[in-house]
Amino acid sequence: MSSDDAKAVARRALALLDLTDLSETCTPAAIDRLCARAVTPYGAVAAVCLYPRFVAQAKRVLAGTGVRIATVVNFPAGGEDTAAVLEETARAIEDGADEIDHVLAWRAFLEGRPGFAETQVARVKAVTAGRAKLKVILETGEIVDPDKIRAATEIAIAAGADFVKTSTGKVKVNATLEAARIMLEVIAATGRGDVGFKPAGGIRTVEDAAAYLGLADQIMGSGWARPSTFRFGASGVLDALIATLEDRVDDGGTGY
């Protein structure tokens, strides 16, 4: 990739980034640092993504910047206590969350209870409708089978997902181009250009970003991937993007 091409990818990817801190040891001070990084000399990221307990803090810190506040529910396990998930979702929205990243009940799905998983998503959608975007995390690295990844994507979209997201970043295998292709193909098959896609986990370099954007351009068209339809879930990649824009060398860092 030429320097000019890399810079073009970096500019594009920065505006599509959900800058993330979902570390178990996250503190209010870490959230302040995350929010400070969200607005760069090259523009702001799309959103910050953090645990529900930090939503109100981030909302205050980022007021007026245009950066959206995303949080996670049913995270990371994708459990079956729907009442607790609904309560967590409602509270996060009241605290100021603009986007809810909900983990599909993927174990129930794999156990042959897709209806449970779909109903849970639909009930979360009823809480978020008109108030926050709903991103449904499939945990594709645990589902593994391509046909099942396809079916899980279809279920999530049918239940009202505004985005489908690959992974929590908390399992051994997270975002892959193979899973991304399947999920994008399902979105394309719906004929709905408004359903978004978010690869998450293990995206650390400009080359990683370029690969996912190239795939989205190939399947959905070159004008489709924008903040309303495409996000990267990552923390370490921001340093790599900025280094590229500043003609510095950076290994992309580590992280979600």
Rank of each mutant, 00 (worst) to 15 (best):
L110T: 03
E111N: 05
E111D: 15
G112S: 10
R113S: 11
P114H: 11
P114Y: 10
P114Q: 03
G115M: 13
G115Y: 15
G115A: 15
E118Q: 03
E118S: 14
T119L: 08
T119C: 02
T119N: 08
Q120S: 10
Q120F: 00
Q120R: 02
Q120Y: 01
V121R: 07
A122H: 01
V124H: 03
V127T: 00
A129Q: 14
G130M: 05
G130I: 07
G130W: 14
R131H: 10
K133C: 06
L134E: 06
L134M: 02
K135E: 00
K135P: 03
L138V: 04
G141A: 10
G141N: 15
E142D: 07
E142C: 09
E142H: 02
I143Y: 02
V144W: 04
D145G: 06
D145H: 12
P146F: 14
K148Q: 12
I149S: 07
I149V: 12
R150M: 06
A151E: 14
T153F: 09
A156V: 03
I157P: 03
I157F: 04
A158V: 10
A158W: 09
A159L: 03
G160A: 09
A161E: 05
A161S: 01
A161F: 00
A161D: 01
D162K: 03
S167T: 13
T168R: 00
G169C: 02
G169K: 02
K170H: 15
V171G: 05
K172R: 15
V173K: 08
V173F: 01
N174M: 13
A175H: 14
T176D: 15
T176E: 09
E178P: 02
E178H: 05
A179V: 01
A180N: 08
R181P: 04
I182L: 10
M183C: 10
M183W: 00
M183Y: 06
L184H: 09
E185T: 04
E185S: 08
V186Q: 09
I187D: 00
I187S: 04
A188C: 13
A189Q: 14
A189W: 01
A189S: 14
T190P: 08
T190E: 07
G191R: 07
G191C: 10
G191A: 14
R192S: 14
R192P: 07
D194L: 02
V195F: 04
V195Q: 00
G196M: 09
K198D: 05
P199N: 13
A200E: 07
G201F: 11
G202R: 08
G202N: 09
G202A: 06
R204C: 06
R204S: 11
R204N: 13
T205W: 13
V206N: 11
E207R: 12
D208C: 14
A209Q: 13
A211Y: 04
A211G: 11
Y212D: 02
G214P: 05
